[in-house]
Simulated scan of single mutants.
Amino acid sequence: MGKVLVLNASYEPLNITSWRRAVVLLLKEKAEQVEHNGRILKSSFPLPTVIRLRQYVQVPYKEIPLTRRNVLHRDGHTCQYCGSKEDLTIDHVVPRSKGGEDAWENVTTACVRCNIKKGNRTPKEAAMPLTTMPRRPHSSLHFEITKHLRGGINEEWRKYVIGMS
C-alpha cells in the first residue's frame, strides 16, 4: 500500500515507516495525519502518506559515510560534467596531487570519458564546469526520501525536505 513519511512535531522529516505503523500511531493519537493520496483505508479514513508526531523527539546527528555508493546516489548516478549515466567513476574536483581531499565537497560523479578529459586539472583549468557543486548531504533520511521521489512516488513529501522543493 505504500510508505509514510513521519515528521517530528516541528515538521522535520524523522523517518519513513509502513502504512500499518502510521495507522497505529494515528489510532493511538501519537500522530496526526498531514497528507494523504486520496486512497481510503476504511470508511472515511484516508490512507496517510505524511504524518506528524504530536510530541517532539530528540534525534542525534548521524554522519553519512563518504563512499562511492553514497556519492553516486547524491549525484543521481549522473556525470556532473556532461550528464551521462554510463561508465561512472568518482572524480576529485581539486585533484589529490594539488592538495584536494577526500571530502563530500571535493568529490563528484564523472563518466570515464570526462574524468580522463579533465585529467589532473581543476574544472576551471579544464574548461569543464560542474552542473552541480558537490556538497555534504543533509541526512541519511534525505537519501532515502530522494529514492522515493525519483521513482515518482509520494510527491507530497517534497515540500517537507530541505533542498527538494
Rank of each mutant, 00 (worst) to 15 (best):
H36K: 13
N37D: 15
N37V: 00
G38Y: 03
G38W: 13
G38E: 13
R39V: 11
L41D: 07
K42C: 06
S43Q: 13
P46S: 03
L47H: 11
L47R: 13
L47M: 11
T49N: 07
L53A: 09
R54H: 08
Y56V: 06
V57D: 05
Q58V: 08
V59N: 06
P60H: 09
P60G: 07
Y61V: 02
K62M: 05
E63N: 05
L66F: 02
R69P: 12
R69M: 12
L72S: 10
D75S: 10
H77A: 04
H77W: 15
T78L: 03
C79F: 02
Y81G: 06
G83F: 10
S84Y: 13
S84T: 15
E86D: 15
E86N: 14
L88A: 10
I90N: 11
H92P: 14
H92M: 12
V93N: 14
V94Q: 15
R96M: 12
R96L: 10
S97Q: 11
S97H: 08
G99E: 09
W104P: 05
W104F: 08
E105C: 01
N106F: 06
N106S: 08
V107L: 05
T108K: 03
T109Q: 02
A110G: 11
C111H: 06
C111A: 00
V112R: 09
V112F: 09
C114W: 07
C114M: 05
G119Q: 08
A127I: 06
P129K: 02
L130P: 07
M133S: 05
H138T: 01
L141F: 08
L141D: 01
H142T: 00
H148R: 13
L149H: 03
L149D: 10
R150P: 12
G151C: 02
G152T: 12
I153V: 10
W157E: 15
